[in-house]
Amino acid sequence: MQDYLFYLFALLTLGCGSMIVLSRNPINSAMFLVLAIASMAGLFVLLHAFFLAAVQVLVYAGAVMVLFLFVIMLLDLKVEQRRRMNTLGIIMGFVSVGTIIAVMLHGVVATPVTPVLEVARHDGATEPLGQLLFSHYVLPFEILSVLLLVAMVGVILLSKKELK
């Protein structure tokens, strides 16, 4: 059952991911990005990362995508006209992506499959995650809050009427 769910979510994620790249209209791309992110949250659930799945849906599919859609509406983007495609760019793009895929697949396939460790399986509870976050990772957490403040101030400055 879980195997079939994995294949379902993986296919959904990859299909929506390719539709992001393929579709001409930016709004369609944004909608497919929502779908890809939601199905990736399904993969997170399969990996027993329930908290992260919820955060993924809330932050990405909720907040970030609302921002994207707002900006798309604000800029009033038309369907992308067919523009002169740089053939060299296309060739180089596919070559580089193919190389990356080849290297990754080779790395995954060449690695001997170690038996899955069954020790200390934490069955996805949020409590140990929070304890780790607020004990061992408390300094990065605080730095992150400062980063959010900096981003907020920066965005307010950037969206003022006249940029100086």
Binding site: T13, S29, V97, T111
Partner: peptide
């Protein structure tokens, strides 16, 4: 390895989009 393959393919798709698409938002 299954998850890593999916992740690698997804990363490559994103990279392909960055290289091929011409719209800043996409």
């Amino acid at each position: 390895q299954h998850y890593l393959i999916v992740s690698g393919l997804l990363f490559s798709l994103g990279l392909l989009g960055v290289i091929l698409r011409r719209n800043l938002l996409v």
